[in-house]
Every structure is written in structure tokens, then in C-alpha cells.
């Protein structure tokens, strides 16, 4: 795979997350009954950072959870090996909550679809939002994010890599190209 460009640096990511945190507060009237649920892997630190900001802005820390969507994937029959199933931890009752699903990249929409299915299996939330750091387009399902850090037009051959300090040692968004 060939490296093409760095499309976001750490400060830009930080600004985008702060903006999203404000937007979430605005949409949820100050974050009442708000829960942030990160999708494995990089949705989880992103949800954590959003929660910190919301607490800083509003003085109230939203509930946090983490979701693994592996058991809801629609492409399992196409894989060589069964993928690793990671922990789902939702330490609150989802019923009646306003839940923001958080992920790093929105592409085909299939992960978001699986996330919605996984979430609704846990109960009946009052409202579900989708927060995304990078929307790279090419949707295959009718899914539209509520909060977006950056819209990044890409070709299908390109790969968007989000790096976060918690998982990758630095904050950056890179664009790569498959041969």
C-alpha cells in the first residue's frame, strides 16, 4: 500500500472533536440522558475524548460504553478466519437514552448498520445519533452521520487510516492507496 498524504494533524483532530462535542450538546439540550458508545477499535478512545470535552463544557459527564459489532457483521461468510470478538461493555440501561454511536471512519455504512443492530438488541434507546471523525463517502446503505469531523472525498482504491494516541501512539489521519 502506498502512502499519499496526511490529511489531518493532531490539532485539527482536537478542534474537530471539540466542535462535535458542542454539536452533541446542542442537539441533546445540554446532554440530558446522553450516552456515548464507541465502536471497536478507535471509536472507543474517540468516545472517551468526546465525553471529557462534554464534561468540561457542561460539567456533566455522559455515560460511556463500548460496542463490538463483530457478531453483527454481514460479511462473515467471506472471511478466511473468524474475526476476533471483543468486549461489549454497556454499563447502563440503553432504554430511553440518547445515544451517540462513535466511530473513526464512515465508509460503506455497514459497520454503522451493524452498530445500530447491536445497540437496539440491548434495548430501546430514545434516539440514536452517529458521530464520525472522517466521512469518506461511498455509502452502500442509507446511513447519514449526525456529526462529522471532516468530509474527505476519496476514491475506492484509497484507504483512510485514523491514528490515535491511545491506540497508535500519535494523532493523525492519513490517506493511503491500494495497488
Amino acid at each position: 500500500m502506498r502512502f499519499k498524504a496526511r490529511v489531518m494533524e493532531a490539532p485539527e483532530i482536537a478542534r474537530a472533536l471539540s466542535r462535535i462535542a458542542h454539536e452533541i450538546l446542542e442537539a441533546t439540550q445540554g446532554g440530558r440522558d446522553l450516552a456515548l458508545v464507541g465502536i471497536h477499535t478507535r471509536g472507543i478512545p474517540l468516545a472517551g475524548r468526546l465525553a471529557e470535552r462534554i464534561e468540561r463544557f457542561e460539567g456533566r459527564r455522559p455515560m460511556l460504553g463500548q460496542l463490538d459489532i463483530t457478531l453483527y457483521r454481514d460479511d462473515l461468510t467471506e472471511l478466511e478466519h473468524a474475526p476476533v470478538v471483543r468486549e461489549t461493555v454497556i454499563p447502563f440501561d440503553v432504554a430511553g437514552k440518547r445515544i451517540v454511536l462513535v466511530d473513526d471512519v464512515l465508509f460503506t455504512g455497514r459497520t454503522a448498520r451493524a452498530g445500530l443492530d447491536a445497540l437496539t438488541d440491548l434495548g430501546r434507546p430514545a434516539r440514536v445519533y452517529l458521530a464520525i471523525l472522517v466521512d469518506r463517502g461511498h455509502r452502500e446503505l442509507p446511513i447519514c452521520p449526525d456529526f462529522v469531523g471532516k468530509n474527505l472525498p476519496t476514491s475506492r482504491k484509497e484507504v483512510v487510516k485514523v491514528k490515535l494516541a491511545e491506540t497508535d501512539g500519535e494523532d493523525a489521519v492519513e490517506l493511503w492507496e491500494r495497488p
Binding site: 463490538d68 457478531l71 470478538v85 440491548l122
Partner: peptide
């Protein structure tokens, strides 16, 4: 066993079925 722990979490839910 890691997968089994994830399955235990599924079994703790009100809806104990996943579409896998």
C-alpha cells in the same frame, strides 16, 4: 476463551440472540 467471554456478555443481555 476470549470469544467465550464475549458470548457470556451476550447471554447476559435481555435479548440473548445475535445474528452472527
Amino acid at each position: 476463551f476470549k470469544t467465550a467471554r464475549a458470548m457470556k456478555e451476550v447471554l447476559s443481555r435481555p435479548i440473548k440472540t445475535v445474528p452472527t
